[in-house]
């Protein structure tokens, strides 16, 4: 019973959050509609899903779920969850009854390839920027067909802050051939 109450409270909280946020960026979304139309047929590379796990329904049976908020002990122990972990948990995003899908706050089930809609629920301004191509990456043609990248291509959905990565090699320091006045470069 407790967990039902918990998820109901979260859902309501999320809903309230969204309705509060909405007026601020809904207007901007309208103004952004001048930019190239973003249909839901946005071309993106395949979402980065772990081939070991996907499809999730190989393990998670459809229609069944454990709504207990808990520390995972056996599986998915590699997932570090640092995404507002105090206020949310797995089933806020993953559809409880169909693990091959995600769900929005409205309850609508969406494919993993549409995960940006899920992210956009909370990150309104970023979603707006992403749609017009200012946040996130695009490849292709600057005046034609563009490929989008999903939020989860750069951000680990479970721990979204960008992690430091290995840089490519540094440039050479210029080396001269000084004669007599050999000097150290600082």
């Amino acid at each position: 019973m407790n967990q039902h109450i918990y998820s109901a409270v979260t859902a309501i909280g999320l809903f309230l959050l969204l309705t509060n946020v909405k007026p601020a960026w809904a207007e901007s979304l309208e103004s952004a509609s001048n930019s190239p139309p973003v249909s839901d047929g946005i071309q993106t590379p395949a979402p980065p899903l772990s081939p070991d796990y996907f499809p999730c329904t190989t393990c998670h049976e459809k229609g069944k779920t454990n709504n207990q908020r808990r520390q995972l002990k056996t599986d998915h122990t590699d997932i570090v969850f640092e995404h507002d972990e105090k206020n949310r948990w797995c089933l806020d995003c993953h559809a409880p009854l169909d693990r091959d899908k995600l769900h929005l706050a409205s309850g609508e089930l969406i494919e993993f390839s549409q995960s940006y809609r899920l992210c956009g629920q909370c990150h309104g301004p970023t979603y707006r920027d992403w749609k017009v191509g200012v946040h996130g990456k695009r490849t292709g043609m600057w005046n034609g067909q563009k490929n989008y990248f999903l939020c989860v291509h750069c951000h680990d959905p479970h721990s979204p802050a960008i992690k430091p990565i290995q840089p490519f090699p540094a440039p050479d320091k210029p080396t001269g051939k000084p004669f007599l006045l050999g000097a150290k470069n600082k």
Binding site: P174, G176, K177, P178, F179, L180, L181, G182, A183, K184, N185, K186
Partner: peptide, 12 residues
Amino acid sequence: EIYVYAPSLTEY
């Protein structure tokens, strides 16, 4: 950037 220039033998 500071690159310390001193002429090379060729230049001299």
